[in-house]
Write a protein that binds this DNA or RNA. Sequence first.
RNA 1: GCGCCGCUAGCUCAAUUGGCAGAGCAGGACACUCUUAAUGUCAAGGUUGAAGGUUCGAUUCCUUCGCGGCGCACCA
Length: 493
Amino acid sequence: MAEELSELLRKRREKLEEFKKAGLDPYPYKYNRTHTSAEILSEFEKIGGEEDSPNEVSLAGRIIAKRGHGKAFFMQIVDGWGKLQIYAKLDILGKEKYELFEKLDMGDFIGVKGHVFRTKTKELTIRVSDWTLLSKSLHPLPEKWHGLQDKELRYRERYVDLMVNAETKEVFLKRIKIVKAIRNFLEDKGFLEVETPILNVLQGGAAAKPFKSFHDALDMPLFLRIAPELYLKRLLVGGFEKIFEMGRVFRNEGISYKHNPEYTMLEVYEAYADYNDIMKLTEAMVLSAIKIVSPELKLEFKGEIIDFSPPWKKIPLLEALRQYGGIDIEGKSEEEIRSIAKGKGIEGIEKIGIGKIINVLYDKLVEPNLRQPTFIIDYPLETSPLAKKKRGNPKLVERFELIIAGMELANAFSELNDPMDQRERLKKQAELKAAGDIEAESMDEDFLKALEYGMPPAGGLGVGIDRLVMLLTNSPSIRDVLFFPHMRPHDNN
RNA sequence: GCGCCGCUAGCUCAAUUGGCAGAGCAGGACACUCUUAAUGUCAAGGUUGAAGGUUCGAUUCCUUCGCGGCGCACCA
Protein backbone atom coordinates (compact mmCIF):
# COMPACT_ATOMS: atom_id res chain seq x y z
CA MET A 1 0.00 0.00 0.00
CA ALA A 2 2.68 2.48 1.08
CA GLU A 3 4.49 2.16 -2.26
CA GLU A 4 1.31 3.03 -4.09
CA LEU A 5 0.76 6.34 -2.30
CA SER A 6 1.43 9.35 -4.41
CA GLU A 7 4.27 11.70 -3.56
CA LEU A 8 1.82 14.13 -1.94
CA LEU A 9 0.17 11.60 0.32
CA ARG A 10 3.51 10.10 1.30
CA LYS A 11 4.91 13.49 2.18
CA ARG A 12 2.03 14.18 4.55
CA ARG A 13 2.46 10.85 6.30
CA GLU A 14 6.15 11.60 6.69
CA LYS A 15 5.29 14.90 8.33
CA LEU A 16 2.93 13.11 10.67
CA GLU A 17 5.87 10.96 11.78
CA GLU A 18 8.09 14.03 12.19
CA PHE A 19 5.52 15.67 14.44
CA LYS A 20 5.29 12.51 16.52
CA LYS A 21 9.08 12.32 16.82
CA ALA A 22 9.11 15.93 18.01
CA GLY A 23 6.78 14.86 20.82
CA LEU A 24 3.55 16.33 19.40
CA ASP A 25 0.31 14.35 19.59
CA PRO A 26 -1.15 14.68 16.09
CA TYR A 27 -4.65 13.79 17.34
CA PRO A 28 -5.14 15.17 20.87
CA TYR A 29 -8.46 14.94 22.72
CA LYS A 30 -9.46 18.55 23.25
CA TYR A 31 -8.45 22.16 23.04
CA ASN A 32 -9.62 25.06 25.16
CA ARG A 33 -10.32 27.99 22.93
CA THR A 34 -11.33 31.33 24.39
CA HIS A 35 -12.79 32.76 21.19
CA THR A 36 -14.19 31.86 17.80
CA SER A 37 -12.96 33.81 14.78
CA ALA A 38 -16.17 35.88 14.72
CA GLU A 39 -15.85 36.68 18.42
CA ILE A 40 -12.29 37.95 17.95
CA LEU A 41 -13.32 40.13 15.01
CA SER A 42 -16.12 41.78 16.96
CA GLU A 43 -14.45 41.98 20.38
CA PHE A 44 -11.21 43.55 19.09
CA GLU A 45 -12.71 45.70 16.36
CA LYS A 46 -11.36 48.86 18.01
CA ILE A 47 -7.73 47.74 18.23
CA GLY A 48 -5.47 50.25 16.48
CA GLY A 49 -2.27 50.01 14.50
CA GLU A 50 0.35 50.02 17.26
CA GLU A 51 -1.29 48.24 20.18
CA ASP A 52 -1.75 44.60 21.09
CA SER A 53 -4.87 43.31 22.83
CA PRO A 54 -4.39 43.44 26.62
CA ASN A 55 -5.16 39.75 27.02
CA GLU A 56 -4.17 36.66 25.09
CA VAL A 57 -6.82 34.74 23.16
CA SER A 58 -6.86 31.19 21.84
CA LEU A 59 -8.43 30.07 18.59
CA ALA A 60 -8.86 26.68 16.92
CA GLY A 61 -9.42 25.88 13.27
CA ARG A 62 -8.17 24.59 9.96
CA ILE A 63 -5.27 26.07 8.01
CA ILE A 64 -6.56 27.26 4.63
CA ALA A 65 -3.70 29.51 3.50
CA LYS A 66 0.03 29.73 4.19
CA ARG A 67 2.32 32.61 3.42
CA GLY A 68 5.88 32.06 4.59
CA HIS A 69 8.53 34.77 4.76
CA GLY A 70 11.61 33.06 6.09
CA LYS A 71 11.65 34.04 9.74
CA ALA A 72 7.98 35.11 9.82
CA PHE A 73 4.83 33.34 8.72
CA PHE A 74 1.19 34.23 7.99
CA MET A 75 -1.64 31.72 7.90
CA GLN A 76 -5.39 31.86 7.47
CA ILE A 77 -7.39 29.82 9.95
CA VAL A 78 -11.01 28.95 9.29
CA ASP A 79 -13.43 27.81 11.97
CA GLY A 80 -17.19 27.32 12.07
CA TRP A 81 -17.80 31.06 12.15
CA GLY A 82 -15.35 32.48 9.65
CA LYS A 83 -11.67 33.10 9.05
CA LEU A 84 -8.89 34.82 10.89
CA GLN A 85 -5.25 35.53 10.07
CA ILE A 86 -2.46 34.47 12.37
CA TYR A 87 1.15 35.65 12.40
CA ALA A 88 4.10 33.64 13.71
CA LYS A 89 7.62 34.93 14.24
CA LEU A 90 10.82 33.04 14.89
CA ASP A 91 11.76 35.53 17.67
CA ILE A 92 8.61 34.81 19.61
CA LEU A 93 8.19 31.07 19.09
CA GLY A 94 11.82 30.06 19.31
CA LYS A 95 13.70 27.92 16.78
CA GLU A 96 12.19 24.53 17.57
CA LYS A 97 8.51 25.55 17.64
CA TYR A 98 8.89 27.83 14.65
CA GLU A 99 10.48 25.17 12.47
CA LEU A 100 7.70 22.73 13.29
CA PHE A 101 5.15 25.46 12.59
CA GLU A 102 6.65 25.87 9.11
CA LYS A 103 6.02 22.17 8.48
CA LEU A 104 2.24 22.50 8.96
CA ASP A 105 0.16 21.71 5.88
CA MET A 106 -2.91 23.22 4.34
CA GLY A 107 -5.84 21.43 5.92
CA ASP A 108 -4.21 20.74 9.30
CA PHE A 109 -6.17 21.74 12.40
CA ILE A 110 -4.27 23.79 14.96
CA GLY A 111 -4.95 25.77 18.08
CA VAL A 112 -3.08 29.08 18.54
CA LYS A 113 -2.59 31.39 21.49
CA GLY A 114 -1.54 35.03 21.40
CA HIS A 115 -2.39 38.70 21.50
CA VAL A 116 -4.57 40.26 18.83
CA PHE A 117 -3.10 43.12 16.79
CA ARG A 118 -3.74 44.93 13.54
CA THR A 119 -1.29 44.56 10.65
CA LYS A 120 -0.06 47.37 8.40
CA THR A 121 -2.83 46.43 6.01
CA LYS A 122 -5.37 46.86 8.85
CA GLU A 123 -6.22 43.19 9.27
CA LEU A 124 -6.94 41.83 12.74
CA THR A 125 -4.41 39.08 13.36
CA ILE A 126 -3.27 36.86 16.21
CA ARG A 127 0.43 37.17 17.04
CA VAL A 128 1.15 33.53 17.88
CA SER A 129 2.90 32.96 21.20
CA ASP A 130 2.17 29.23 21.22
CA TRP A 131 0.49 26.68 18.98
CA THR A 132 -0.82 23.12 19.24
CA LEU A 133 -1.42 20.53 16.54
CA LEU A 134 -5.08 19.42 16.80
CA SER A 135 -5.42 17.12 13.78
CA LYS A 136 -3.01 16.24 11.00
CA SER A 137 -4.55 16.29 7.53
CA LEU A 138 -3.32 13.54 5.20
CA HIS A 139 -4.84 14.73 1.91
CA PRO A 140 -3.93 17.77 -0.18
CA LEU A 141 -6.63 20.43 -0.50
CA PRO A 142 -8.00 21.52 -3.89
CA GLU A 143 -6.64 24.57 -5.65
CA LYS A 144 -6.98 27.70 -3.53
CA TRP A 145 -8.27 30.04 -6.22
CA HIS A 146 -10.77 27.93 -8.19
CA GLY A 147 -11.71 25.66 -5.33
CA LEU A 148 -13.28 22.30 -6.10
CA GLN A 149 -15.16 22.58 -9.42
CA ASP A 150 -15.77 18.99 -10.51
CA LYS A 151 -19.44 18.33 -9.75
CA GLU A 152 -18.95 14.64 -9.23
CA LEU A 153 -16.24 15.22 -6.63
CA ARG A 154 -18.24 17.99 -4.96
CA TYR A 155 -21.18 15.63 -4.43
CA ARG A 156 -19.12 12.57 -3.54
CA GLU A 157 -16.70 14.36 -1.22
CA ARG A 158 -19.03 17.01 0.09
CA TYR A 159 -16.75 17.49 3.09
CA VAL A 160 -14.10 18.89 0.75
CA ASP A 161 -16.64 21.02 -1.11
CA LEU A 162 -17.80 22.50 2.21
CA MET A 163 -14.21 23.07 3.29
CA VAL A 164 -13.10 25.08 0.30
CA ASN A 165 -16.22 26.49 -1.40
CA ALA A 166 -17.83 29.11 0.82
CA GLU A 167 -20.91 29.31 -1.46
CA THR A 168 -21.67 25.65 -0.81
CA LYS A 169 -21.70 26.21 2.92
CA GLU A 170 -23.93 29.27 2.39
CA VAL A 171 -26.57 27.19 0.62
CA PHE A 172 -26.76 24.74 3.51
CA LEU A 173 -26.83 27.49 6.13
CA LYS A 174 -29.79 28.96 4.24
CA ARG A 175 -31.46 25.57 4.13
CA ILE A 176 -31.18 25.33 7.91
CA LYS A 177 -32.74 28.79 8.30
CA ILE A 178 -35.57 28.06 5.87
CA VAL A 179 -36.48 24.85 7.68
CA LYS A 180 -36.38 26.70 10.98
CA ALA A 181 -38.60 29.50 9.63
CA ILE A 182 -41.20 26.96 8.53
CA ARG A 183 -41.15 25.23 11.92
CA ASN A 184 -41.47 28.55 13.70
CA PHE A 185 -44.35 29.59 11.45
CA LEU A 186 -46.29 26.41 12.11
CA GLU A 187 -45.55 26.34 15.83
CA ASP A 188 -46.65 29.97 16.14
CA LYS A 189 -49.94 28.97 14.58
CA GLY A 190 -50.42 26.21 17.13
CA PHE A 191 -49.41 23.21 15.03
CA LEU A 192 -47.72 20.34 16.88
CA GLU A 193 -44.80 18.48 15.35
CA VAL A 194 -45.27 14.70 15.36
CA GLU A 195 -43.40 11.63 14.14
CA THR A 196 -44.90 8.59 12.43
CA PRO A 197 -43.44 5.28 11.18
CA ILE A 198 -40.96 5.25 8.32
CA LEU A 199 -41.09 1.45 8.09
CA ASN A 200 -44.56 0.75 6.73
CA VAL A 201 -46.42 -2.53 6.31
CA LEU A 202 -48.42 -1.12 3.40
CA GLN A 203 -47.72 1.36 0.64
CA GLY A 204 -49.97 4.40 0.77
CA GLY A 205 -50.50 8.14 0.92
CA ALA A 206 -49.19 8.93 -2.54
CA ALA A 207 -48.87 7.52 -6.04
CA ALA A 208 -45.29 6.30 -6.06
CA LYS A 209 -43.17 3.17 -6.22
CA PRO A 210 -41.76 2.31 -2.78
CA PHE A 211 -38.46 0.81 -1.63
CA LYS A 212 -38.82 -2.64 -0.15
CA SER A 213 -37.14 -3.80 3.02
CA PHE A 214 -37.44 -6.85 5.27
CA HIS A 215 -37.80 -7.44 8.98
CA ASP A 216 -35.90 -10.63 9.84
CA ALA A 217 -37.29 -11.31 13.32
CA LEU A 218 -40.89 -10.83 12.21
CA ASP A 219 -40.14 -12.53 8.90
CA MET A 220 -42.11 -9.98 6.94
CA PRO A 221 -41.59 -7.48 4.13
CA LEU A 222 -41.74 -3.76 4.92
CA PHE A 223 -41.88 -0.65 2.76
CA LEU A 224 -40.03 2.60 3.35
CA ARG A 225 -42.72 5.24 3.49
CA ILE A 226 -43.61 7.23 0.39
CA ALA A 227 -45.66 9.69 2.48
CA PRO A 228 -46.74 10.02 6.12
CA GLU A 229 -50.30 10.97 5.09
CA LEU A 230 -52.30 7.99 6.30
CA TYR A 231 -50.67 7.96 9.75
CA LEU A 232 -51.20 11.69 10.19
CA LYS A 233 -54.88 11.25 9.41
CA ARG A 234 -55.08 8.56 12.07
CA LEU A 235 -53.83 11.22 14.46
CA LEU A 236 -56.68 13.51 13.35
CA VAL A 237 -59.01 10.66 14.24
CA GLY A 238 -57.27 10.37 17.60
CA GLY A 239 -57.96 14.00 18.42
CA PHE A 240 -54.91 15.96 17.30
CA GLU A 241 -56.32 18.91 15.38
CA LYS A 242 -53.30 20.79 14.09
CA ILE A 243 -50.23 18.70 13.34
CA PHE A 244 -47.26 18.54 11.01
CA GLU A 245 -44.41 16.22 10.24
CA MET A 246 -41.22 17.16 8.43
CA GLY A 247 -39.24 14.14 7.44
CA ARG A 248 -37.66 11.93 4.89
CA VAL A 249 -39.76 9.99 2.40
CA PHE A 250 -38.43 7.47 -0.11
CA ARG A 251 -39.50 6.89 -3.69
CA ASN A 252 -38.10 4.20 -5.89
CA GLU A 253 -38.07 6.28 -9.06
CA GLY A 254 -35.78 8.05 -11.48
CA ILE A 255 -33.26 10.70 -10.49
CA SER A 256 -33.31 14.17 -12.04
CA TYR A 257 -32.54 17.79 -11.23
CA LYS A 258 -35.71 17.80 -9.12
CA HIS A 259 -35.83 14.16 -7.93
CA ASN A 260 -33.71 12.32 -5.37
CA PRO A 261 -34.66 8.84 -4.10
CA GLU A 262 -34.99 10.21 -0.57
CA TYR A 263 -36.21 13.72 0.05
CA THR A 264 -37.70 15.86 2.76
CA MET A 265 -41.43 16.30 2.81
CA LEU A 266 -43.50 18.52 5.05
CA GLU A 267 -47.06 17.43 5.68
CA VAL A 268 -49.52 19.62 7.57
CA TYR A 269 -53.07 18.76 8.69
CA GLU A 270 -55.66 21.10 10.13
CA ALA A 271 -59.03 19.90 11.40
CA TYR A 272 -62.12 21.89 10.44
CA ALA A 273 -60.28 23.53 7.53
CA ASP A 274 -60.76 23.00 3.79
CA TYR A 275 -58.41 23.46 0.87
CA ASN A 276 -59.17 27.18 0.65
CA ASP A 277 -57.88 27.64 4.19
CA ILE A 278 -54.84 25.52 3.40
CA MET A 279 -54.11 27.65 0.33
CA LYS A 280 -53.91 30.73 2.54
CA LEU A 281 -51.77 28.86 5.05
CA THR A 282 -49.42 27.66 2.30
CA GLU A 283 -48.97 31.14 0.88
CA ALA A 284 -48.24 32.66 4.30
CA MET A 285 -45.88 29.82 5.25
CA VAL A 286 -43.87 29.91 2.05
CA LEU A 287 -43.65 33.71 2.28
CA SER A 288 -42.25 33.42 5.81
CA ALA A 289 -39.47 31.24 4.38
CA ILE A 290 -38.84 33.52 1.40
CA LYS A 291 -38.36 36.51 3.69
CA ILE A 292 -35.26 34.78 5.03
CA VAL A 293 -33.48 35.17 1.71
CA SER A 294 -35.40 37.99 0.02
CA PRO A 295 -37.31 40.57 2.08
CA GLU A 296 -38.52 42.18 -1.15
CA LEU A 297 -40.09 38.82 -2.19
CA LYS A 298 -38.34 38.72 -5.55
CA LEU A 299 -35.54 36.38 -6.45
CA GLU A 300 -33.63 34.93 -9.35
CA PHE A 301 -33.86 31.25 -10.17
CA LYS A 302 -31.85 29.91 -13.11
CA GLY A 303 -31.75 33.33 -14.76
CA GLU A 304 -35.45 33.96 -14.31
CA ILE A 305 -36.97 36.48 -11.89
CA ILE A 306 -39.65 34.95 -9.67
CA ASP A 307 -41.96 37.45 -7.99
CA PHE A 308 -43.56 36.08 -4.83
CA SER A 309 -45.68 39.15 -4.08
CA PRO A 310 -49.07 37.91 -2.89
CA PRO A 311 -51.75 37.09 -3.71
CA TRP A 312 -50.62 34.28 -5.98
CA LYS A 313 -52.65 33.32 -9.04
CA LYS A 314 -55.33 30.70 -8.60
CA ILE A 315 -56.43 28.87 -11.74
CA PRO A 316 -58.76 25.86 -12.04
CA LEU A 317 -57.02 23.03 -13.88
CA LEU A 318 -59.50 23.00 -16.78
CA GLU A 319 -59.09 26.76 -17.14
CA ALA A 320 -55.29 26.35 -17.11
CA LEU A 321 -55.60 23.83 -19.95
CA ARG A 322 -57.45 26.50 -21.93
CA GLN A 323 -55.03 29.30 -21.08
CA TYR A 324 -51.71 27.48 -21.34
CA GLY A 325 -52.53 24.44 -23.42
CA GLY A 326 -54.97 25.99 -25.87
CA ILE A 327 -57.42 23.15 -25.39
CA ASP A 328 -60.95 23.22 -24.00
CA ILE A 329 -62.19 19.95 -22.57
CA GLU A 330 -64.94 21.35 -20.38
CA GLY A 331 -68.09 19.30 -20.97
CA LYS A 332 -66.38 17.19 -23.65
CA SER A 333 -66.96 13.45 -23.85
CA GLU A 334 -64.24 10.92 -23.09
CA GLU A 335 -63.90 10.13 -26.80
CA GLU A 336 -63.39 13.79 -27.66
CA ILE A 337 -60.81 14.29 -24.93
CA ARG A 338 -58.87 11.23 -26.09
CA SER A 339 -58.72 12.57 -29.62
CA ILE A 340 -57.64 16.01 -28.39
CA ALA A 341 -54.81 14.33 -26.45
CA LYS A 342 -53.80 12.38 -29.55
CA GLY A 343 -53.86 15.62 -31.53
CA LYS A 344 -51.36 17.05 -29.05
CA GLY A 345 -49.06 14.10 -29.64
CA ILE A 346 -49.63 12.43 -26.27
CA GLU A 347 -48.66 8.77 -26.61
CA GLY A 348 -49.68 5.59 -24.85
CA ILE A 349 -53.03 6.74 -23.52
CA GLU A 350 -55.18 3.92 -24.85
CA LYS A 351 -55.08 2.02 -21.57
CA ILE A 352 -55.35 4.86 -19.06
CA GLY A 353 -58.48 6.45 -17.69
CA ILE A 354 -59.85 9.86 -18.52
CA GLY A 355 -58.65 11.49 -15.31
CA LYS A 356 -55.10 10.34 -15.96
CA ILE A 357 -55.27 11.64 -19.51
CA ILE A 358 -56.24 15.06 -18.19
CA ASN A 359 -53.30 14.87 -15.79
CA VAL A 360 -50.92 14.02 -18.61
CA LEU A 361 -52.25 16.92 -20.69
CA TYR A 362 -51.72 19.18 -17.71
CA ASP A 363 -48.18 17.88 -17.06
CA LYS A 364 -47.16 18.35 -20.69
CA LEU A 365 -48.93 21.53 -21.68
CA VAL A 366 -49.39 23.55 -18.52
CA GLU A 367 -46.92 22.84 -15.72
CA PRO A 368 -43.71 23.70 -17.62
CA ASN A 369 -45.25 27.07 -18.53
CA LEU A 370 -46.16 28.05 -14.99
CA ARG A 371 -43.17 30.14 -13.97
CA GLN A 372 -44.57 32.54 -11.35
CA PRO A 373 -46.20 31.18 -8.17
CA THR A 374 -49.57 29.71 -9.17
CA PHE A 375 -52.15 27.55 -7.44
CA ILE A 376 -53.74 25.08 -9.84
CA ILE A 377 -57.01 23.96 -8.29
CA ASP A 378 -59.68 21.28 -8.75
CA TYR A 379 -58.22 18.05 -10.14
CA PRO A 380 -59.90 15.04 -11.79
CA LEU A 381 -61.39 12.59 -9.29
CA GLU A 382 -59.62 9.51 -10.64
CA THR A 383 -56.07 10.60 -9.82
CA SER A 384 -56.78 11.81 -6.28
CA PRO A 385 -58.08 8.90 -4.23
CA LEU A 386 -57.59 10.64 -0.87
CA ALA A 387 -59.28 13.98 -1.67
CA LYS A 388 -62.87 15.07 -1.17
CA LYS A 389 -65.11 15.59 -4.18
CA LYS A 390 -65.59 19.18 -5.22
CA ARG A 391 -68.69 20.83 -3.95
CA GLY A 392 -71.02 21.06 -6.97
CA ASN A 393 -68.90 18.89 -9.29
CA PRO A 394 -68.35 15.24 -8.30
CA LYS A 395 -66.02 14.62 -11.26
CA LEU A 396 -63.45 16.85 -9.61
CA VAL A 397 -61.81 16.93 -6.20
CA GLU A 398 -60.95 19.85 -3.94
CA ARG A 399 -57.22 19.78 -4.47
CA PHE A 400 -54.54 22.30 -5.32
CA GLU A 401 -50.91 22.22 -6.30
CA LEU A 402 -48.52 25.13 -5.95
CA ILE A 403 -46.36 25.48 -9.05
CA ILE A 404 -43.30 27.72 -9.24
CA ALA A 405 -40.71 27.75 -12.06
CA GLY A 406 -42.41 24.71 -13.60
CA MET A 407 -41.90 22.67 -10.42
CA GLU A 408 -44.56 21.27 -8.14
CA LEU A 409 -43.80 22.71 -4.71
CA ALA A 410 -46.92 21.70 -2.80
CA ASN A 411 -49.99 19.50 -3.08
CA ALA A 412 -53.06 19.76 -0.86
CA PHE A 413 -56.67 18.76 -0.51
CA SER A 414 -59.83 18.94 1.44
CA GLU A 415 -59.19 15.53 2.98
CA LEU A 416 -61.63 12.74 2.27
CA ASN A 417 -63.21 11.66 5.59
CA ASP A 418 -66.23 9.71 4.34
CA PRO A 419 -65.24 6.09 5.11
CA MET A 420 -67.65 4.61 2.55
CA ASP A 421 -66.39 6.84 -0.25
CA GLN A 422 -62.78 6.19 0.81
CA ARG A 423 -63.37 2.44 0.75
CA GLU A 424 -64.75 2.65 -2.79
CA ARG A 425 -61.79 4.71 -3.96
CA LEU A 426 -59.21 2.43 -2.37
CA LYS A 427 -61.01 -0.53 -3.89
CA LYS A 428 -60.46 1.01 -7.32
CA GLN A 429 -56.81 1.61 -6.43
CA ALA A 430 -56.46 -2.01 -5.34
CA GLU A 431 -57.90 -3.10 -8.68
CA LEU A 432 -55.36 -0.93 -10.50
CA LYS A 433 -52.63 -2.45 -8.36
CA ALA A 434 -53.82 -5.96 -9.15
CA ALA A 435 -53.77 -4.99 -12.83
CA GLY A 436 -50.12 -4.06 -12.51
CA ASP A 437 -50.06 -0.40 -11.45
CA ILE A 438 -47.11 -0.42 -9.05
CA GLU A 439 -47.87 3.10 -7.86
CA ALA A 440 -51.47 2.45 -6.84
CA GLU A 441 -52.55 2.67 -3.19
CA SER A 442 -52.96 -0.43 -1.04
CA MET A 443 -56.23 -1.44 0.59
CA ASP A 444 -55.48 -0.25 4.12
CA GLU A 445 -58.16 -1.75 6.37
CA ASP A 446 -56.76 -0.20 9.52
CA PHE A 447 -56.84 3.25 7.95
CA LEU A 448 -60.44 2.68 6.85
CA LYS A 449 -61.35 1.51 10.33
CA ALA A 450 -59.90 4.73 11.73
CA LEU A 451 -62.03 6.75 9.29
CA GLU A 452 -65.07 4.74 10.35
CA TYR A 453 -64.53 5.93 13.92
CA GLY A 454 -64.86 9.42 12.45
CA MET A 455 -62.23 11.88 11.24
CA PRO A 456 -63.08 15.56 11.49
CA PRO A 457 -63.26 17.53 8.26
CA ALA A 458 -59.70 18.65 7.56
CA GLY A 459 -57.36 20.24 5.09
CA GLY A 460 -53.99 18.63 4.41
CA LEU A 461 -50.81 19.83 2.73
CA GLY A 462 -47.57 18.34 1.42
CA VAL A 463 -44.54 20.48 0.59
CA GLY A 464 -41.30 19.44 -1.11
CA ILE A 465 -38.79 21.13 1.18
CA ASP A 466 -35.78 20.43 -1.05
CA ARG A 467 -37.42 22.08 -4.02
CA LEU A 468 -38.35 25.09 -1.94
CA VAL A 469 -34.71 25.37 -0.86
CA MET A 470 -33.62 25.06 -4.51
CA LEU A 471 -35.79 28.04 -5.40
CA LEU A 472 -34.66 30.13 -2.47
CA THR A 473 -30.95 29.47 -3.00
CA ASN A 474 -30.97 29.61 -6.81
CA SER A 475 -29.69 26.03 -6.93
CA PRO A 476 -30.21 24.42 -10.34
CA SER A 477 -30.28 20.85 -9.02
CA ILE A 478 -31.78 19.11 -5.98
CA ARG A 479 -28.30 17.64 -5.47
CA ASP A 480 -27.06 21.13 -4.63
CA VAL A 481 -29.36 21.36 -1.61
CA LEU A 482 -28.70 17.85 -0.26
CA PHE A 483 -25.51 17.35 1.73
CA PHE A 484 -25.11 13.86 0.33
CA PRO A 485 -27.14 13.35 -2.84
CA HIS A 486 -27.48 9.79 -4.05
CA MET A 487 -24.54 8.71 -6.25
CA ARG A 488 -23.63 5.41 -7.81
CA PRO A 489 -20.66 3.92 -5.97
CA HIS A 490 -17.29 3.88 -7.67
CA ASP A 491 -15.42 0.64 -8.42
CA ASN A 492 -12.43 1.42 -6.24
CA ASN A 493 -14.25 0.60 -3.00
C1' G B 1 -34.42 3.29 -19.71
C1' C B 2 -33.00 6.53 -24.37
C1' G B 3 -30.01 10.65 -26.62
C1' C B 4 -25.99 14.26 -26.45
C1' C B 5 -21.52 15.83 -23.97
C1' G B 6 -17.46 15.05 -20.57
C1' C B 7 -13.41 12.14 -17.89
C1' U B 8 -5.49 14.55 -19.05
C1' A B 9 -0.66 15.53 -12.42
C1' G B 10 -3.70 16.15 -5.62
C1' C B 11 -6.83 20.59 -7.74
C1' U B 12 -8.08 24.16 -12.03
C1' C B 13 -7.25 23.79 -17.05
C1' A B 14 -4.13 23.44 -22.14
C1' A B 15 -2.32 20.07 -26.07
C1' U B 16 -2.87 22.46 -34.03
C1' U B 17 -4.41 17.48 -39.20
C1' G B 18 -3.02 11.22 -35.53
C1' G B 19 3.71 12.96 -34.53
C1' C B 20 8.40 13.63 -27.87
C1' A B 21 1.72 15.18 -22.76
C1' G B 22 2.12 21.21 -20.90
C1' A B 23 0.93 25.40 -17.46
C1' G B 24 -0.89 27.61 -12.87
C1' C B 25 -1.95 26.35 -7.89
C1' A B 26 -0.77 22.65 -4.19
C1' G B 27 3.61 19.65 -2.70
C1' G B 28 9.70 19.49 -2.36
C1' A B 29 14.67 22.32 -1.94
C1' C B 30 16.90 27.23 -1.34
C1' A B 31 16.31 32.69 -0.26
C1' C B 32 13.24 36.20 2.28
C1' U B 33 10.80 39.05 9.81
C1' C B 34 3.70 42.82 7.81
C1' U B 35 1.89 38.93 3.83
C1' U B 36 -3.06 38.11 2.00
C1' A B 37 -4.03 34.27 -5.16
C1' A B 38 2.97 36.80 -0.99
C1' U B 39 7.51 36.88 -4.05
C1' G B 40 12.17 34.94 -6.56
C1' U B 41 15.33 30.66 -8.17
C1' C B 42 15.73 25.34 -8.91
C1' A B 43 14.09 20.37 -9.17
C1' A B 44 10.17 16.79 -9.20
C1' G B 45 5.29 15.15 -10.25
C1' G B 46 1.29 11.26 -15.75
C1' U B 47 -0.93 3.56 -17.01
C1' U B 48 -4.48 10.78 -20.55
C1' G B 49 -11.47 6.79 -16.53
C1' A B 50 -10.90 0.99 -17.93
C1' A B 51 -10.39 -2.84 -21.64
C1' G B 52 -9.85 -3.85 -26.67
C1' G B 53 -9.22 -2.35 -31.99
C1' U B 54 -7.21 0.59 -36.38
C1' U B 55 -2.18 2.68 -37.26
C1' C B 56 4.89 2.92 -38.18
C1' G B 57 2.81 6.00 -34.25
C1' A B 58 -3.50 7.24 -30.42
C1' U B 59 -4.99 12.25 -25.22
C1' U B 60 -6.70 12.62 -30.50
C1' C B 61 -10.07 7.79 -34.79
C1' C B 62 -13.41 3.15 -33.82
C1' U B 63 -15.93 -0.58 -30.29
C1' U B 64 -17.40 -2.09 -25.43
C1' C B 65 -17.65 -0.92 -20.35
C1' G B 66 -17.52 2.47 -15.80
C1' C B 67 -18.67 7.17 -13.53
C1' G B 68 -20.61 12.05 -14.08
C1' G B 69 -23.29 16.29 -16.38
C1' C B 70 -27.34 18.01 -19.43
C1' G B 71 -31.88 16.83 -22.08
C1' C B 72 -36.02 13.30 -22.73
C1' A B 73 -39.04 9.48 -20.29
C1' C B 74 -41.02 8.26 -15.21
C1' C B 75 -42.22 10.93 -10.84
C1' A B 76 -43.05 15.07 -6.18
